[in-house]
Design a protein around this nucleic acid. Sequence first.
DNA 1: AGTCCCCCCATTTTT
DNA 2: TGGGGGGACT
Length: 745
Amino acid sequence: MVVSDILDSLNEYQRQAVSAPTGSYLILAGAGSGKTRVLTHRIAWLIQTHGVSPHGILAVTFTNKAAAEMRARIESLMETPLRGMWVGTFHGIAHRLLRAHWQEAKLNQNFQILDGDDQLRLVKRVLASLDLDEKKWPARQALWYINAQKDEGLRPRHIEDFGDLYIKTHVQIYAAYETACERGGMVDFAELLLRAHELWLNNPRLLQHYQQRFSQLLVDEFQDTNTIQYAWIRLLAGDRNNILVVGDDDQSIYGWRGAKIENIQKFTTDFPASEMIRLEQNYRSTGSILKAANGLISSNAGRLGKELWTEAADGERINLYAAFNEIDQARYIVERIKDWVAQGNSYTECAILYRSNAQSRVLEEALLRSQLPYRIYGGQRFFERMEIRNVLAYMRLLGNKDADASFERVVNTPSRGIGDRTIEEIRQLARSQNISMWQAAILLKEQGKVTGRTKNAIQGFITLIEEMDAATADLELAELCEIVIQMSELREYYEKERGERGQARLENLQELVTAARTFDPDSGVDFDDPDEVAPLSLFDDFLNHAALESGEGQGDIHQDCVQLMTLHSAKGLEFPLVFLGGMEEGLFPHKMSLEEPGRLEEERRLCYVGVTRAMQQLYLTYAESRRINGSETYNRVSRFVSEIPSEMVQEVRAQQSISRPAYTSSFSAARPMPSRVNINSMRSFADAELGGTNLKLGQRVVHAKFGEGVVINYEGEGKQARIQVNFNQEGSKWLMMAYANLQPA
DNA sequence: AGTCCCCCCATTTTT
DNA sequence: TGGGGGGACT
């Protein structure tokens, strides 16, 4: 691609960002404003017109997917593979650095990456070794604490406990956990970042080397950086005025896992020579959707400020549907999707977004019943599945007998008579002799301190691993994988597991073999790069890949089906038709986030993210009554709905007027548009008894749970009849007449 | 060691 | 409502 082409397809501000002289920039890129375009074109521009070598470029993202996409797009732009350019996730790049400089980082050469599950197991063991009651000190909480401290760049010695038992105990756990990791040569995700930061901090010459090498730094999704990531990139940037970050403070939705929106807010002060460029022209949504989004987000304080606009027409207004309950909501959504498809569109274009995963079930049921194809995002990822992790643990053990986490995982999986007590003994011995569990197991067996059966079991395991080792010595990765599955008897083990579950597990095992066969080690690695670690064996590479990449995008994405996902996982995606379900106070904004203003604002940003996913049509729906955790709740409509300018919103059913469904016989029947009954005609209706009961509008009633109240509204008939009562204590609620059991007061 | 049952809990997720 | 974890029982 020639130079002019790089700028041709860009708008004024995009071009300004891409062709800016080298320096420091914050590109405030609104949703759908073409930020990836800017990032990739910028890199192309740097190479073509500033003569920057790909070797001198470092581009950081948050997900492997984003990194892969960025590299692919630059390469297609430049029409050549770009060796030597470092494009990766924070974790991936940190890992690369630590592998190259393991000695300076004070790590084992073959340190092992601990994923979330490994980490939790380790914390549990640490708790046990400290004799702490797991009831009082839940492992999850301790894990969360440790990770949060690491994200902040804090070691146990940095934390002051102020005599607070909670902090004191957790710091103690943290310290013991750290020792355990150290001993076993294990590094968790947060540790990768923290170590990489300390590596440079403690080795100025190393830092200097990388500063000289990377003349241009680029960071994507900057609003999602946490403290340590920011510190790390800042250290690398130094005062060289050579960093371009792209982000959107309005789309910062990961504060709860350590992301600091402050990082983007203070960028221009931290990098005094920097300049901010706003990308506000949106190429995704209709005018109405953007106006709705702008209106909504304007309720947040302390924004960097940004207003999306489009050259496109306003399009349809945003639809608001008040459902009776979550089932009605699902039914409504399904009907709209059917309409959409009937108009010649596809299912894939439809997305149903919700705040929490629990909401997917009812939607799924409705889709299933109507036989619409769908796909639910989220859930367990490939490399996180138990059966896969077990095979990988065997493989790890083959590569490194001292990998204790893997040893523990598979020593008795499938069960071979090595019980908890024996494992504990091995663990104790390993600790006291300062050897690995593998060595301890051998020692324990040789010491003759264990009885015949246990001894045999231990010997059996040792022999198994050794035989496996011998059998796989010269095999290709996929064959090795296959042999491991067979010899470990994991296949047999899962064959015994009946039902769909076992079947799925077997299929996954097969898929692992396929993954091993088609595994392509890190593309873009330049083997002439002096900073590149001596290439790992394909085997090690594969295991690292499995640890660092959870296995996104497996399975059939190409089918035409409705997309269901949480609002969080929808970030970065776009769909012609979007439904935001569960627009209810307590659900969205979630009740856990109502206390602190900061968290409420994050909820609002999440809503903003949801709204800006929509390209053509947006439906907001809420349920007046909803079953949550087994009990019926009555939530008001979300405040976010009223924060959207009302002229952009079209209510599918007017709330304030008294209305009755056109087809009252059954809600499962199609209900095109509700017929409305005005107050006057309703009066005479109200004078009569409601739905064959002895209740009237305005009547005082008593409810078993909610106490005394006044009947203020009513709709529907028969089993579906609902009644609105304004309770003295609880405020106004809609109740199903059939269950309310109201007594005249 | 495996199974069953009861109790407790319940946002969001990537690496 | 339902899933996961822990404890008790077989």
